[in-house]
Design a protein around this nucleic acid. Sequence first.
DNA 1: TGTACAAGTTTAAACGATTAAACATATATT
DNA 2: AATATATGTTTAATCGTTTAAACTTGTACA
Lengths: 347, 347
Amino acid sequence: MPLNLFNTKNTSTFMKKNVSLKDIAEHVGVSTALVSYVLNNKLKDRINKDVAAKIKKAAEDLNYRPNQIARSLKAQKTFTIGLIVADIANPFSSQIARIIEDEAKTYGYSVIFGSSDESAEKTSDLIKLLLDRQVDGLIIALPEHTEAQVHYLQKINVPFVLIDRYYPTIQTNSVSINNFNAAQKAIQHLMDNGHKRIGVVAYKTSLFHLNERIRGAVDLLAENALIGEVGINSINQDVIASIDRFLSDPDPVDAIFFTSNLLTISGLKHINSLGIRIPDQIAVVGFDETDAFDLFYAPVSFVKQPLVDLGNASLKLLISTIENKDNIEVVELEAELVIRSSSIIQK
Amino acid sequence: MPLNLFNTKNTSTFMKKNVSLKDIAEHVGVSTALVSYVLNNKLKDRINKDVAAKIKKAAEDLNYRPNQIARSLKAQKTFTIGLIVADIANPFSSQIARIIEDEAKTYGYSVIFGSSDESAEKTSDLIKLLLDRQVDGLIIALPEHTEAQVHYLQKINVPFVLIDRYYPTIQTNSVSINNFNAAQKAIQHLMDNGHKRIGVVAYKTSLFHLNERIRGAVDLLAENALIGEVGINSINQDVIASIDRFLSDPDPVDAIFFTSNLLTISGLKHINSLGIRIPDQIAVVGFDETDAFDLFYAPVSFVKQPLVDLGNASLKLLISTIENKDNIEVVELEAELVIRSSSIIQK
DNA sequence: TGTACAAGTTTAAACGATTAAACATATATT
DNA sequence: AATATATGTTTAATCGTTTAAACTTGTACA
């Protein structure tokens, strides 16, 4: 076998060890305790200034960085929070994640995230994983059928905040919008613009927050409501079927309210493919913001959730729960209707 | 002050302590060492089966879960990786994040993420933060002017992989697409479709991977190239100026290649507002995928990066580096041109 | 009867930090 | 001179785990 001068394998055993308090202590000739006191600015008035200076210099010279794992173990606190969303690749989730990341940083916390894919089992697994890693608290967007997980978290007394989704029958910290009102804003707007027959495209789900959107719409539409139900695993197919049914109805729709961003996008694609003009033939209101709405030939009106407020409120609530605030808080924010041309008939 | 029967503050001092090996040991009446050996299936052939069964039962009954922080400290390994992206709220970043999350999980790793906002300083801070938390390795999408950070990581011998962006002059692990080829695919396609005067909208940056896109385009266009430069902090403004200049040129463009998703979206909005029809008056090719491209009246042709391959390759490379593979690997993947109606003139 | 070995378990150190308590030594107070 | 106080530093335990090494007891064999 030829000698390979460039083979770095042999040098790879050399791994620079991290500098510890012990290294500094030995370097200066004092105990690790003293080094710790100096670097943490404790016992300030007791410590010899020259020694303190020497220790600080040594820490600097050796490029000392405290091992947060060791700190966490001793302090029984990791300054890490777990964030469980449906799918970090979904813009709603990733925008929330970004807001929480920034807000967490201002409190000295880092974020470990996980995607549940709307699966209760994956949610369980993620909760366990994050708790095993000793996160100080959790922010969770729950999928369906996770009552057991919520009760478990309550039983073991872990700080957590539900975001976006929650169970109205279980008392927990939660931060969400008022989905009933949000839907009513959308429907009322369509009615105010003269639309009589309004279709609602919504998920077939047990999730309370999504059903509130339906309830808000139906409350205004009464027997005039046409509801299209969409399975989470057959979005395109069911959206198409819903729209087709809305149009072939004896009294066909003149407006459609889509109750999520994915439903809106799927619906707009189908309306496009049918050659139906928005808003002249059908008016449209969507839910949640995406670039696609801006760029659409008739910029899409939509219900805009206050993402920054949602993210910040959930983080603040979590931190105060971690810091021993013990009463439960339910934060409900109002969404805003952004009106653009997809729902306004030109005169 | 009235007595508040519902005040839970008083009970809040009760905090369920996590069950430790010591608790199991005391419960069964053995040493923690034995408990550890049993639960980790070590020394199998030496341990009394009845005792082992008792220990396992106790662990189960007490709902024992190993403290990963303590494990990490002892093992000098956290099974956590740090992911630094420009902005987790950007679809490109969040899609990559999702892929890395999934792939990491199959290796037993978790992901802590951070957004650099294209700032070299924030990148430094994030690297320090993540290293302080003892991540086993890093996957980083670097912003400009971060050579020092790369050299620092090399000096302290931390496993890391650069994704999307890298310095061709610094030997590091990296995973990216061939941006030169990607741009050429886009330009060649436009030329093949009879476009003669092609504008290229690109960031004014020192980032190699972005300049490769320009280089690829210019290589084919030669003196026919019209380049619009866009500052990262003035995207809309500069995109508008570039397009206006392209159009008012004595020899105006008949096609535009946008070299990122944000540039594409910004450009399409301006083209819309000018009432210019795509593809009849101007053909367009974008970069990276977004829902907005699908929904556009002329679905947008775009350069599609192999996100799944990028994510998986970077994670695999990182893991093998963590596990002591010592040679540097540069992975370069090919992007694919997805052709739709925005770049095809109807006959 | 003494030695070797196997079986089963414990001891103790280690990971890197924090911190109450103890310990020296010097200085002030009576 | 004896005692109190201030100053400066160390000792040792702790967080929860892992694991090499040591220890105990029993059994087999010469």
